[in-house]
Design a protein around this nucleic acid. Structure first.
Length: 559
RNA sequence: GUCCCAGUAGCUCAGUGGAUAGAGCGGUUGCCUUCUAAGCAACUGGCCGCGGGUUCGAAUCCUGCCUGGGACGCCA
């Protein structure tokens, strides 16, 4: 149980008691909010309940704060409960309790920060899902990093998470991709061939064609065109998906499942979803096409699901896909992470989900906004159509996985951001990535020295950790569990890097002010206690960096 | 024209109903005999885009305007 919840419960009891005593007279009590005050002088936690209760209680808020505070007992966790003007109640944690948490963190190890907030509910995070017609573009890197970190946090917060990539392997874009590979294949073998009008121009197409020639030779030339395109398309698609998988792996993004769009048609999810919409009266035929009446459900216009050619649209398969997520695979909650260019698609998807009798709040679409790449003051162009686009792979090669992930994570998903390649590349104090990792490395080198000297600190007494820097470090470590819940609840992974900075600051301050392994034998007891704190901090750093998908280096050298 | 996102320190961004608005970078100045100076300490720097409203209390909520980016297809 989080301390925050303990305090919340204690306030609730106090209200009850005040009621019984006749000291408080209200009909209804607003929800109890316990927050972290900005100013450390106000303690570890605070509530503004008296301020919000004052009107209903027809009383002065400060007086109410006194009435309630007097009825909140102190205890093992809470050292003091103080009313404060104009009507807050401030709570300070007990130093002994804080010190004891060092042992608790060490005992928790890699499960430190985990909670059962999610109650093992089935949740899917679907992200990236780039069409397998080309390598992953830098524009998708942000969504990839956000999705993977969010999934990590949801897992730590107790959800049963599935990370999924939706492979759009049906539809007209794929057809253009197949034909492009076919054309390059023929050209490479000296046959006349033109890229289709909507074809893909990137060099990677020729690369795939060359790979196919190396493996299969000229044999596709013996087939008639439609058969050859189908056969070579199958091979090319698998190669492309494998390339995408490798690209994403390079930025530390891995999936539990790669879901094929074509499966929706094979397994009749498409038929079932359309039948359901038809039953609900949500489909209508008009000018030869089949339309989804999304206007009736709040969208600003209707949308075609089956073209007059009889081909289903992308929207239709997305409806079937969400039918599959909720009904086929019983996910209680689904989070889709889409690029900014899909924002217009959100209202109709929400409408379609509602039309299939799925509570719309169970589908959350996060839009990962545009990223402007810069190199110092200069804007870096990244254009897919021209063929010379900046790929995710190029970005990782230039900047490195850790800096990439850190910078993408540090910004709220819903806001457009600038990514400065120059700043992210600099391996210097200018780069906050190294500030965090350096704290972990300093931490590791203390533990290594202790190990080299065979210092056994198992008997260390954590109650000796009573300096402000030690207690601040403990306090900061202990915020991780509630931070993870916050990230999971609000779907805001950008809090992680900011927390990591604060944890690193607390550690660096401790490091500067509290010599851990002392040369003086008189300090032996304190050395053992501090080693326990360092071991606990190591866990907190490791957990934080792992959640962000970053590496936690034991050594860092200037080059 | 409609819809979405944003406007906070010189730059990049946190803070989204509370108490004195923060961080990193930049700029100025100090600190390495002792677990790594990729660190620490100090200073510098703000009509929180503008106007109105709601509230005991607004950077945060509502509304109008201004500025920038994006989306509006029987493409995906």
């Amino acid at each position: 149980m989080l301390v925050r919840d303990t305090i919340s419960a204690a306030i609730s009891n106090a209200l009850e008691r005040a009621h019984q005593d006749g000291a408080l007279n209200v009909d209804s009590v607003p929800s109890i909010e316990v927050e972290r005050p900005n100013n450390p002088e106000h303690g570890d936690f605070a509530t503004n309940l008296p301020l919000r209760l004052a009107r209903a209680a027809r009383s002065n808020p400060l007086h109410l704060a006194e009435v309630i505070a007097a009825r909140v007992p102190t205890g093992p966790e809470i050292a003091s409960v103080t009313p404060a003007a104009p009507g807050f109640i401030n709570f300070r944690l007990n130093d002994h309790w804080l010190q004891d948490q060092v042992e608790a963190v060490r005992a928790a190890g890699d499960s430190f920060g985990a909670s059962d907030f999610g109650a093992a509910r089935k949740i899917m995070v679907e992200f990236v899902s780039v069409n397998p017609t080309g390598p992953v573009h830098v524009g998708h890197a942000r969504g990839a990093v956000l999705g993977s970190a969010l999934a990590n946090a949801l897992h730590a917060a107790g959800y049963a998470v599935t990370r999924e990539y939706y492979v759009n392997d049906a539809g007209s874009q794929m057809e253009a991709f197949y034909r492009s590979v076919w054309a390059r294949y023929r050209q490479a073998l000296g046959q006349p061939a033109d890229l289709p009008d909507n074809g893909y121009h990137g060099d990677y197409i020729a690369g795939i064609a060359a790979d196919i020639i190396a493996a299969d030779g000229r044999r596709y030339l013996d087939m008639d065109d439609p058969a050859a395109i189908r056969a070579i398309g199958d091979v090319a698609r698998e190669k492309m998906v494998a390339l995408i998988r490798d690209d994403l792996d390079a930025i530390g993004v891995r999936f539990d499942n790669w879901f094929s769009e074509r499966q929706l048609f094979r397994d009749a999810d498409y038929d079932r979803a359309m039948a359901r919409l038809r039953q609900g009266g949500h489909l209508a035929e008009r000018s030869g096409a089949l339309w989804f009446n999304s206007t009736a459900l709040g969208d600003d216009r209707d949308n075609v699901v089956v073209r007059s050619s009889g081909e289903p649209t992308y929207f239709a398969s997305d409806i079937a896909y969400h039918f599959n997520k909720f009904y086929g695979r019983s996910f209680e909650r689904v989070i889709d992470i889409w690029g900014a260019d899909h924002q217009g698609h959100v209202p109709r998807m929400k409408a379609a989900v509602a039309a299939m009798d799925i509570a719309p709040e169970n589908l959350t679409v996060l839009i990962s906004q545009m990223v402007t790449l810069k190199r110092g003051a200069e804007t870096v162009r990244a254009s897919k159509r021209t063929g010379d686009f900046v790929t995710l792979r190029e970005l990782v090669d230039e900047v490195g996985l850790d800096a990439c992930r850190y910078f993408f994570l540090a910004r709220a998903a819903s806001t457009q951001m600038e990514f400065d390649l120059e700043l992210a590349t600099k391996e210097s104090s200018e780069n906050p990535v190294y500030y965090v990792q350096y704290a972990h490395a300093r931490n590791a080198s203390i533990l290594k020295l202790a190990a080299d000297r065979a210092i056994d600190y198992a008997a260390g007494d954590v109650r000796l950790l009573d300096s402000p820097h030690e207690l601040t470090l403990i306090r900061t470590m202990l915020r991780l569990p509630e931070l993870i819940v916050q990230v999971a609840e609000n779907l805001e992974p950008h809090h992680l890097p900011h927390y990591a900075m604060e944890l690193a600051t607390a550690f660096h301050h401790f490091y500067e002010n509290c010599r851990v392994i002392s040369a003086n034998p008189d300090d032996n007891a304190l050395t053992l206690a501090r080693l326990k704190l360092v071991a606990a901090a190591q866990i907190a750093f490791h957990r934080t960096l792992t959640l962000m998908g970053m590496t936690a280096p034991d050594r860092m050298e200037r080059t």
